[in-house]
Computed example of a mutant assay.
Amino acid sequence: MSKAASLIYVADDDPDILELISIVLTRGGFEVVGFETADALMAALAVRTPAAALLDVRIPGQSGLDALKAIKDDSATAHIPVLMLTGDGRLDRIVQAMQLGAAGYVMKPFDGAQLVERVRSLLL
């Protein structure tokens, strides 16, 4: 996997969770750029396109679901697979994310090895 193909953007408002996700994915061979807001992730998309993105559903400002919709509605970013990674397991949230184009929905707490494999599967 080349560096360019392995760039993953992650948005989570909890700095500890963001650091954990970054460590897990970096150990899995990915280049990870973390953001504490969906707005910051969206701004970065204008500069560099990742191979995939992981979004928390509930983050201050623009929610992960809002960011997912914006990513999927923009022809320049619609191809980016987006995995929702969240503690919000309500069925209506899961359905909404999938209807908006999420490639999957992973619940926190997550297993690191499973998360790495889920991200790898997004890139196949």
Rank of each mutant, 00 (worst) to 15 (best):
A4I: 10
A4C: 07
A5N: 15
S6E: 12
S6A: 13
V10M: 07
V10P: 09
A11F: 04
D16H: 15
D16C: 00
D16R: 13
V24T: 12
G29L: 00
F30W: 09
E31K: 09
E31S: 08
E31C: 00
E36R: 14
A38H: 01
M42C: 07
M42L: 15
A43I: 11
A44V: 06
V47E: 15
T49F: 03
P50W: 02
A51Y: 04
A52Q: 09
A52N: 09
A52G: 12
A53S: 14
A53P: 07
L54D: 12
D56N: 01
V57Q: 05
R58P: 00
I59Q: 02
Q62A: 10
S63I: 04
D66Q: 06
A70E: 10
D73F: 02
I80C: 05
P81S: 09
M84R: 03
G87K: 04
G87S: 10
G89P: 08
L91N: 10
R93M: 11
I94P: 00
I94C: 00
Q96S: 09
M98Q: 11
M98E: 07
Q99C: 06
Q99V: 00
Y105R: 01
V106H: 00
K108F: 00
G112Y: 05
A113E: 15
A113F: 10
Q114V: 14
Q114I: 15
L115N: 01
V116T: 12
E117F: 01
E117V: 04
E117K: 08
E117W: 05
R118K: 12
V119W: 04
R120K: 14
L123G: 07
L124H: 14
